[in-house]
Design a protein around this nucleic acid. Structure first.
Length: 458
DNA sequence: GCCAACGTTGGC
DNA sequence: GCCAACGTTGGC
C-alpha cells in the first residue's frame, strides 16, 4: 500500500490523492487518513464541534460509525443546536453536490453510488472471474468487466441484469477491520476483503462442510422419493426401448441389403432372353409421360432413362457439404468425398451421388435381373431377363433399391442420434440432481406428517 | 495511444 | 432471460 500513498517519497492524502498538507486538514479516527477540509466540505469552524471524525468511506463500510460531536446530539436543543444543524445541512449539501458533479462529469460514474462498500474499494480483488480476465492478472481481457468486489451493490440491486456472483470468500459486511480467519482451527487474521487468511483455509472449511452435511443429505435423498427422478427413469426406459427398436430395424435393413446382393448375384447367372422385348413394345404406345424434373414430354420407352439422367443433372447443381466425416458402424451410406480445397466432406447418399460416384459400365451380356411383379404388391421368383442396356421398365432398379434402403438406414441412425441426445440430457439432469453440488445446495422438506409414518411403517 | 469498463449483441 | 464476447467510449 505504501507505494500507492507515496509518490516520489511524498505522502499522498485525502480523496484528491495530493501531497498538499499546507491547507486545513482533518483526520479520520478510524482509518487515520487525512482529508482536506475543502475537499470534503468541512470548515475549521465545523471541526471545532467534532470530537471524533469518521470519513465517508469508513462510514459506508461500517454503518455503526457516526461522527461524534463534542456535545451529544440529544442536547442539541441548546443554543449550539443551530450550529450542528447547519453543519449537518452543509455536509448533506456538499455530498449531493459532489454526487451531481461526478454524475455530470462522468457518465460511467452513474453506475456507482459512491457510498457502498464496493464503491469505496480501491483495489481489484484479483480472485473473481472478472479480475482473472484482466490483463494485469494474466487474463485475455475478453470480459472487460469491473472486479466483482467493486461493482456497486446499490446499483446491482436495482437495475443491473447481470447477477452478482455470490463468492463464499467474499465479505458479508466488507468491514475492512481484520478479523479471525474462518478456516477450521485457524487463528490467523483474515485477508482484507475475505473471511479467510488464505485460499487453503477457504478450501478446508468447504471440505469440512461437505463432510459434515453430505452424508445426511445422501441418507435423506435415499429415504425420500423424488418425482423428477422417477419421471426421468421412466423416460430413460422408453428411450432404451426405442433405441433397441431402431437397432433391430437397422439389422433388418442390413439383411435387406444382403438379400438384394443375393438377388443381383442370381440375376448375373441368367442369360438374355430376347423374346420378351416384342411383347413390351406394343403396350402403352399412346400414353404421354412428362419428366418429373424438367417437365419435358417423353417417349415411354426412354422415360425412366431420361428422368434418371435429368435428376442427376439437377442433383449435381446442389452441393451438400459438411466439415465432418461420417462415423457410422458398418457401411456408411454417405458419399464422404473429401474436397481438400474446401476441407469438407460430401454428404449425398453414396449410391446417388452423381458427382463422386461413377456409374458402373454395363456389359452387353448383362441381364436386367429385376424381380418381376406378379401383382401390384408382391413380386415372384421370376427375374426380368431382358438385356440390362435395353430394359426400359427396370432402368436403374438396383441403384434405386439400394438408395431406398440407405434412406431408411439414415432415418434410423438419425433417430438413434436423437435418442442418444435425449438420454444424455436426462442423465445429466439426474447426475446434477444427486451430484455433490445438487445435494449440498438443495433439499426437500416434506410437510406431510403422514408421509413420515408411511416411511417408518414401510 | 492505452486502458478500464459500459452497453449492446447474438447465441443458447 | 442469461451470459460471453466485443465494439465503443471516456479518461488519462
Amino acid at each position: 500500500m505504501d507505494d500507492e500513498n507515496d509518490v516520489d517519497g511524498e505522502t499522498l492524502y485525502c480523496i484528491c490523492r495530493s501531497a498538499d498538507s499546507e491547507r486545513f486538514m482533518i483526520g479520520c479516527d478510524h482509518c487515520e487518513e487525512w482529508y482536506h477540509g475543502d475537499c470534503i466540505g468541512i470548515t475549521t469552524d465545523d471541526a471545532k464541534l467534532i470530537k471524533r471524525y469518521y470519513c465517508d468511506a469508513c462510514i459506508a463500510r461500517n454503518k455503526n460509525l457516526q461522527i461524534q460531536y463534542k456535545t451529544k446530539k440529544k442536547d442539541r436543543r441548546t443554543s449550539e443546536s443551530s450550529e450542528y444543524e447547519k453543519f449537518d445541512k452543509n455536509q448533506k449539501d456538499y455530498r449531493n453536490k459532489l454526487r451531481e458533479k461526478m454524475a455530470s462529469k462522468n457518465k460511467k460514474a452513474s453506475r456507482k453510488c459512491g457510498d457502498c462498500s464496493a464503491c469505496s474499494r480501491n483495489e481489484d480483488c484479483g480472485r473473481c472471474d472478472y479480475c482473472k480476465d484482466m490483463k494485469k492478472f494474466g487474463g485475455s481481457n475478453k470480459l472487460k468487466q469491473t472486479c466483482r468486489m467493486r461493482q456497486c451493490t446499490s446499483y446491482s440491486n436495482k437495475s443491473r441484469s447481470r447477477g452478482h456472483a455470490e463468492v463464499d470468500d467474499a465479505l458479508e459486511t466488507d468491514d475492512e477491520v481484520p478479523r479471525q480467519c474462518y478456516g477450521p482451527s485457524c487463528v490467523e487474521p483474515a485477508r482484507i476483503g475475505s473471511k479467510y487468511c488464505s485460499d487453503e483455509c477457504g478450501m478446508k472449511l468447504a471440505k469440512s462442510r461437505i463432510y459434515e452435511i453430505l452424508p445426511s443429505r445422501i441418507q435423506q435423498w435415499q429415504s425420500s422419493p423424488c418425482v423428477g427422478e422417477e419421471n426421468n427413469k421412466k423416460v430413460l426406459e422408453s428411450l432404451r426401448e426405442e433405441t433397441i427398436e431402431a437397432r433391430t430395424r437397422l439389422k433388418q435393413l442390413d439383411v435387406k441389403i444382403q438379400e438384394l446382393d443375393l438377388l443381383v448375384e442370381r440375376g448375373k447367372q441368367l442369360t438374355i432372353v430376347a423374346e420378351q422385348e416384342g411383347t413390351d413394345q406394343e403396350e402403352d404406345t399412346e400414353l404421354s409421360i412428362y419428366c418429373v424434373t424438367c417437365g419435358t414430354e417423353l417417349n415411354h420407352k426412354g422415360a425412366l432413362r431420361h428422368m434418371e439422367k435429368c435428376y442427376l443433372k439437377f442433383e449435381a447443381q446442389t452441393s451438400f457439404w459438411s466439415l465432418y466425416k461420417t462415423h457410422i458402424e458398418g457401411n456408411s451410406m454417405f458419399c464422404d468425398f473429401y474436397n481438400p480445397q474446401q476441407k469438407m466432406y460430401c454428404k449425398r447418399l453414396k449410391i446417388l451421388c452423381p458427382e463422386h460416384t461413377k456409374e458402373p459400365k454395363v456389359s452387353p451380356d448383362a441381364v436386367c435381373g429385376c424381380p418381376i411383379a406378379t401383382n401390384l404388391f408382391a413380386e415372384g421368383e421370376t427375374l426380368c431377363r431382358i438385356a440390362k442396356r435395353k430394359c426400359v421398365k427396370h432402368f436403374c432398379w438396383e441403384k434405386l433399391r439400394r438408395a431406398e434402403i440407405d434412406m431408411q438406414r439414415l432415418r434410423q441412425w438419425m433417430k438413434l442420434d436423437d435418442l442418444f441426445e435425449q438420454e444424455r440430457n436426462i442423465r445429466m439432469a439426474m447426475s446434477n440432481r444427486m451430484g455433490v453440488l445438487g445435494l449440498m445446495l438443495h433439499q426437500t422438506v416434506d410437510h406431510d406428517p403422514l408421509r413420515v409414518m408411511k416411511t417408518i411403517v414401510s
